[in-house]
Amino acid sequence: MPEITYLENVASQVRRDVLRQVHACASGHPGASLGCAEFFVALYFEIMHHDRAFNMKGAGEDVFFLSNGHISPVFYSTLARSGYFEVAELATFRKLNSRLQGHPATHEGLPGIRIASGSLGQGMSVAIGVALGKKLDGDDKTVFVLTGDGELQEGQVWEAAMFAPHNKLDNMIVTVDLNGRQIDGDTKDVLSLGDVEGKWRTFGWDVMTIENGNDMAAVVSGLKEAKSRLGKGKPVCVLLKTEMGFPIDFMVGTHKWHGAAPNDEQLANALGQLEETLGDY
């Protein structure tokens, strides 16, 4: 098992990759990409049993779906750093003829991507389909899906939230990135989510919270705990409290960096706050 410090080092490099990707194309979504770095690294480097020799079906392995596809930079970096494709390919992000589309897609055949996402609210339904398929096939591996908290405003999320417990899909874990922010402002101002924990619980999910989603040890132990709750008749929902923009001092505490790229000076400033641990691409 990797040491927590090793995972933290990977996360630091992933964050550098995120910033350098969005800077190079002057677009993209760094905010929640940075906030979810611990989650992605924990998942791909510690929690999931997955095969880097990518197979679309994902039979016999844990699979992950990113529903809030706009945080593609952290997804791409994690996939590259864990061996799905060359790290150097991150330089093509959002550029013409790239496999690294602005939002994740299967169309160009990028290893690690099983569905297009970007139009919000659809990932949980897809994850449910895979979870049902695994049950049909007697495959005991786990299906993970990440959704944003602003994304919970989409009605389809709640269609899916109703379906999974009714069908006792106790082989899937939904993680909600609770950073409290979306493009137009704080979620509490744009459209209040109300009692998020209560909503999932009353829909029939086994709900747990990771209070500090930017603490690697807490994320690893939280996701392990989530996995241990599977197989008991209920799907599991993890409320992951993160900070958009973490840990860049000028990016936290605001929704401003949801979908804005840093300029040269801001990039240099931000990279100065993140150790280069595995080597920049």
Partner: peptide, 15 residues
């Protein structure tokens, strides 16, 4: 909407 997404997921697994 959920049905279409679930169908896509089932197709991923080879159904």
């Amino acid at each position: 909407a959920n049905m279409m997404g679930i169908a896509a997921g089932l197709a991923i697994g080879g159904k």
